[in-house]
Design a protein around this nucleic acid. Sequence first.
DNA 1: CTACATGCAAATTTTTTGCATTACA
DNA 2: TGTAATGCAAAAAATTTGCATGTAG
Lengths: 134, 134
Amino acid sequence: MNFEEGLKQNGLKITPQRVAILKEIQRRGHATIEEIYEDILKEYPSISLATIYKNIISLCEADLVKEVKVSLQKQRYEINCGEHAHIVCTECGKLEDIEFGMESFYHNAMITRYIQPSFVSMTIYGKCNQCLKE
Amino acid sequence: MNFEEGLKQNGLKITPQRVAILKEIQRRGHATIEEIYEDILKEYPSISLATIYKNIISLCEADLVKEVKVSLQKQRYEINCGEHAHIVCTECGKLEDIEFGMESFYHNAMITRYIQPSFVSMTIYGKCNQCLKE
DNA sequence: CTACATGCAAATTTTTTGCATTACA
DNA sequence: TGTAATGCAAAAAATTTGCATGTAG
């Protein structure tokens, strides 16, 4: 994904901080605020936590970044690039992406990487009838 | 669900605070910490926020209560009674339960209550191969 | 140039902890 | 009666805000 392009298309200025945040999220796959901050600090000692927070909000609003909420874990963020499911280890917390196909994901989860998926969390987002009317 | 029984089976003492928390979560369906606290305060002016937090942890560990994480919303809690999916309005934030059947949920979501589900979030929990070995 | 973004410090909000007291079993 | 739970106050962690300064376009 071209970050500069994505920022421009959403009316967000291309700043080195923003690009660094996006790169860091991409590098990690799924990053917490703290992880993003700590890592960017190394090459960018002046960056502020407030900048991370403010940008995460802008980037989520622009749909360049998506929240990943996992049970018992801190909120994470990922680059928004195509729908996929997540697979989480209930022991070590490892979080991975997995192809999102209605028929295949159970199979995929069981055979290739995890055994005995114990619980599936699914949430569907959309406009409810009432909000559609308004 | 019989709350007293559930508590007993998990070695948790039956206190009026605990029962009030469970009842409040059940009444609301999906409640935030703040909602639970505010409502219980009315009939229980001495209850402490710390008690709510401590109990939510115990109740989740005992699997009597489950976290519900929804994008852009505060964490909520629900009584753990059978697997189901969630359906969330992206406009007003309304959160509802929906039957969890692989083939039927899209249909269910579209026809009965929501139109044009715009995004599905799915997370599968289970032990990864590495953790199974250990 | 001008509007938006950054960084700092302070303020808020959220969650956790320690400890004395209370109450369930 | 002993152990676990409660409630308070204080501490720690997470997030937000205001404002002066800097910078991308």
